[in-house]
Computed example of a mutant assay.
Amino acid sequence: MTNPSPAPLAAADDFLYSWSAQDTTRGSGGITEEPEQARQCVREALARLSPDAGGVVERVRLDRSARQPSYIHVAVVWRFGRRSAEREGGVVAC
């Protein structure tokens, strides 16, 4: 009897969401399956960066043909400046 292999993070047609936020000297980012979670993470990160900071949420797919973990960028979902994140309700924990 063979052991079942673990489920992949996402099927070939499933989208993931990449998020990043940065100012001129610092930044952070990550990957999640939920677009709203990515949006909240950007808002949290922007609150900790300088006023000139910006952030983005992108729809991505896991590149299964790459030797190293890699993502294929499909589309930008949201772009943020620090002020736009504050207008949308301030900091949300990530």
Rank of each mutant, 00 (worst) to 15 (best):
S84D: 07
A12K: 05
G27Q: 04
E36A: 15
P51A: 14
Y71P: 02
A66W: 09
S28L: 14
R59D: 02
R83G: 07
G29W: 07
R61P: 00
R64W: 15
G90M: 11
A45C: 14
D52P: 01
E33N: 13
A47R: 05
C94N: 10
E36P: 06
E33I: 07
S84F: 00
G30R: 01
A7T: 00
E44I: 10
R87I: 09
E36C: 14
S65W: 10
E33C: 10
P4H: 11
V56Y: 09
R83S: 11
T32F: 03
E36R: 12
A38S: 12
A45G: 04
V56G: 02
G55D: 12
Q22P: 05
A11V: 01
V92Q: 10
V92C: 07
H73D: 08
V74D: 02
V92P: 00
F80V: 05
G90T: 09
F80E: 06
A66S: 15
E58R: 14
A38M: 15
V91P: 13
P69K: 06
S70A: 14
V92A: 12
R64F: 14
G81V: 06
V76R: 15
Y17W: 01
R67P: 06
V74Y: 01
A21I: 10
W78V: 03
L62T: 08
A7M: 13
G54I: 09
